[in-house]
């Protein structure tokens, strides 16, 4: 069983990096958080990036295969979609989704983006 203190520390670091105004924090989250082998860490990272609601942070969880809405873990993907649907201002997320649907090279990524965009339009 994972130590509660470790979980708390990782959660706080990811949350803190999500709030840090330095754009370098997005790269750190992408490099370490979204590539972790632990589903919970990937989930925490994706949610922190969505909450940030910036073009670059949203791009990480929408356009990358195997990350965010395209994660192989259903829990991580659904959690990211849920966070996207909870956004108060969805403008930037819709812009990124539209670009992905129109321009991404991978069909699976395009399909996922189209589905999420449809869900966001309905919510």
């Amino acid at each position: 069983m994972t130590d509660r203190k470790i979980v708390k520390n990782v959660t706080n670091i990811i949350e803190g990096l999500g709030q840090n105004p330095n754009s370098e924090s997005i790269t750190i989250l992408e490099d370490i958080g979204t590539n972790s082998k632990v589903d919970a860490i990937r989930e925490l990272t994706s949610r922190a990036l969505v909450k940030r609601n910036e073009h670059d942070s949203l791009k990480v969880v929408i356009t990358n295969k195997g990350k965010g809405i395209n994660d192989m873990s259903t829990v991580v993907a659904m959690s990211t979609i849920n966070e996207l649907l909870s956004l108060e201002d969805k403008t930037e997320a819709l812009n990124v989704l539209t670009d992905t649907v129109e321009m991404h090279s991978d069909e699976e990524v395009r399909d996922n983006a189209r589905s999420v965009k449809a869900l966001m339009a309905l919510s």
Binding site: N12, I13, G16, L17, Q19
Partner: peptide, 9 residues
């Protein structure tokens, strides 16, 4: 432990 506030700053 580490707080989110510390990391955010």
């Amino acid at each position: 432990g580490i707080s989110a506030k510390q990391v955010a700053k």
